[in-house]
Design a protein around this nucleic acid. Structure first.
Lengths: 202, 202
DNA sequence: CAGCTAACGCAACACGGTTTGCGTTAAGGT
DNA sequence: ACCTTAACGCAAACCGTGTTGCGTTAGCTG
């Protein structure tokens, strides 16, 4: 019997889901997020939210953690270029939605996990990062399986994910999404891109 | 006589400087930023802060605006590659400092300026963005004056600034600053980079 | 040097978020 | 089916944030 374990399937699960849903909904509406508001929307008492998440930041971090950690599906178009293009477009579309953007802002505001964080309360932006990294690696692995020349995941992160997120976070208007993504991808699938790395992967 | 003008050299200047300093200090310590805390640290009454900046977001925006807007000096090494390398290294170093990083996080958390913002109260992340843009344009203009082939400022933002900020914000460890910056710059000063743009320089 | 005005300091106040104690409910174990 | 226990709901109190009115100070201006 593990005493420090939250009961799976208990009442908590429903509350958690409702609160997460409420957070996303409130976030999408653009209002300032407060615990009482979230609780009211979720049909849950504010005390429960305070007890479970302690803070708006923690609540946001947990929501972002769930939100960014589960979506691991990557497109399969038959070519690295097509995959990166589709994936990049999906990232742009996702980062353009208000609730995802707000979640991203909240994650970045908190920053990566500080020491002393309780178990299971990992950093949201770290979760987002590893989610994107694994997605990039999946795309690259598929391309390599096809015999294509592939860049490193780090390069994809630097030159595809980073610009997309940078533009979204800083409010830089993305001029013509397709053109932007294409430009980004062109620089990653060109032969020079793959041979530029001298360090071993990992 | 201009009635809506804050008196230059008045008492306000000292208060402004003290408050800005306090904001940076508090931010560097990682505590949650509140107006009373800032006021106490600055040796100023909280009322003054409320009257002048109205809100924590406004205070943050103004601080970031001053912090990111004044440092417009760009390196002059004699070549575009050298300039970008030096500038990128400076960005990495700056983004690594706790107070600057905290300011950046706060700026990103607030987001770009919402409609209805009073005059002079621009968004902090917008201020950071235009600051970086003007710096990039200065570097590129100097290179172009030397007769070098230069990429667009947008490309520099996407492939140099964005990765640096992305890594800093998401806590991705920058492996060997020099190597990172060099890799980034190589992709911007290569001849293929300049000819990829079809739009005329703005 | 005297008057003017804007900005600041102070104190009291109002509002909303957050904490706390206790009773209740609902899963899981026997 | 009963007991155990963790999580939830409720209500009241607490605390800090943000506001307002007025007196005071310090920097311009003639």
């Amino acid at each position: 019997m593990t005493p420090a374990m939250t009961r799976p399937g208990g009442r908590s699960a429903k509350v958690t889901a409702a609160v997460h849903q409420a957070v996303v909904e409130l976030l999408a509406e653009g209002d300032a997020l407060t615990v009482p508001q979230v609780a009211a929307r979720a049909g849950v008492n504010a005390t429960s939210v305070y007890r479970r998440w302690g803070d708006v930041a923690g609540l946001l971090a947990d929501t972002a953690l769930v939100r960014f950690g589960t979506s691991s599906a990557v497109p399969e178009t038959g070519s690295l270029r097509g995959d990166l293009l589709a994936w990049g477009a999906a990232l742009v579309e996702e980062a353009g939605r208000p609730e995802e953007l707000a979640l991203l802002r909240a994650a970045v505001a908190v920053g990566p996990a500080d020491p002393g964080a309780p178990e299971g309360f990992e950093s949201a932006c770290s979760a987002c990062l590893v989610g994107r990294s694994s997605q990039a690696e999946a795309v690259l692995a598929a391309a390599q399986r096809r015999g294509e020349e592939v860049p490193t995941a780090t390069r994809v992160l630097d030159h595809l994910v980073a610009p997309i997120y940078f533009r979204a976070l800083f409010g830089l208007p993305a001029p013509s999404v397709e053109v932007l993504v294409e430009l980004l991808v062109e620089r990653l699938v060109s032969p020079a891109a793959a041979q530029a790395t001298s360090s071993p992967p990992g």
